[in-house]
């Protein structure tokens, strides 16, 4: 199928690129992967939940909560 040719070509381009990547490039990718896991898996789930998304089910509830926070007596 001709329409898939550009996609196949792009895919091969990336595969070839990664295969012939110099040593420093591999090291960089290793750092990116470790960092990605640390940021998106460990930090996001253990330390940085989105409080409003986690604690409230709808935007209406979130609005109500923030309005309460903003208008409560201080």
């Amino acid at each position: 199928m001709k329409i898939f040719q550009p996609i196949q070509k792009a895919f091969r381009f990336y595969v070839e690129g990664f295969r012939h990547m110099p040593a420093w490039g591999r090291k960089m990718w290793l750092i990116i992967i470790i960092k990605g896991i640390a940021i998106f898996v460990i930090m996001k789930f253990l330390f940085f939940p989105n409080l409003l998304k986690k604690n409230y089910n709808s935007d209406e509830e979130r609005s109500k909560h923030v309005l309460e926070q903003l208008t409560k007596p201080r």
Binding site: I31, I39, F40, M43, P49, N50, L51
Partner: peptide
């Protein structure tokens, strides 16, 4: 490569530490 995605943590902090603001 070293710097990429370091900024995304700021967005996490908005959701956790600064939820009223976000």
């Amino acid at each position: 490569a070293i710097g990429v995605a370091t900024g995304i943590i700021l967005e996490f902090e908005f959701g956790t530490n600064w939820s009223n603001y976000s």
